[in-house]
Design a protein around this nucleic acid. Sequence first.
DNA 1: GTAAGGATGCGCT
DNA 2: GCGCATCCTTACG
Length: 200
Amino acid sequence: MAESTDRLPRSFYERPTLLVARELIGRLLVRVHQGRRLSGMIVEAEAYIGGGDSACHASRGRTRRNAVMFGAPGHAYVYFTYGIHWMLNVVTEREDFPAAVLIRALEPVEGVEAMRERRRGRQDRELTSGPAKLCAALSIDRALNGADVVEGEELFLESYRNFSPAQLERGVRVGIDYARPRDRKAPWRFWLRGSPWVSR
DNA sequence: GTAAGGATGCGCT
DNA sequence: GCGCATCCTTACG
């Protein structure tokens, strides 16, 4: 399969969030840390779309925490939760419309040794098969909140691989029991069919 | 100022 | 499968 190292342009993110979430599957997430590349192919992602989506952090308006989601597309929204975990999203759509895609799982590609180091004691399968696991493996935390993934040099995305619609699966989002039934049922999670790196 | 809860992961049963 | 870790953010007073 052909691979590409082209970085995704701003226009990739400035589109409907569901489209971006689906097309993020197969892209390479690259983290440059201590002078070396740590990367993984995105195999699972979820869309969080606007103030009307009760599962989206922006549903209760703009706060200091979620402000990045209200900004320009192509930026990282990194937040802390459960007292322990960091999560990575990429901001989508136009400025002032709060939406983002949560990166839920990666297939490790570059820097696997460094990931094992940071995830000591875990099986390879556990390196990046969850939104908080991948942040730990790639050394992603609040320092990267607001980072520009189009122009920046610490965190960015490359085209990498393309999959056909038949290779993708779609279903409900994970961990949003607090949301309204209608939003809980929305099939806004996408993943690569059969990938052992998908979460859960 | 204070309390409640979270877009999860881990370890133990 | 279940409980807990652990602290940031928010909401309310």
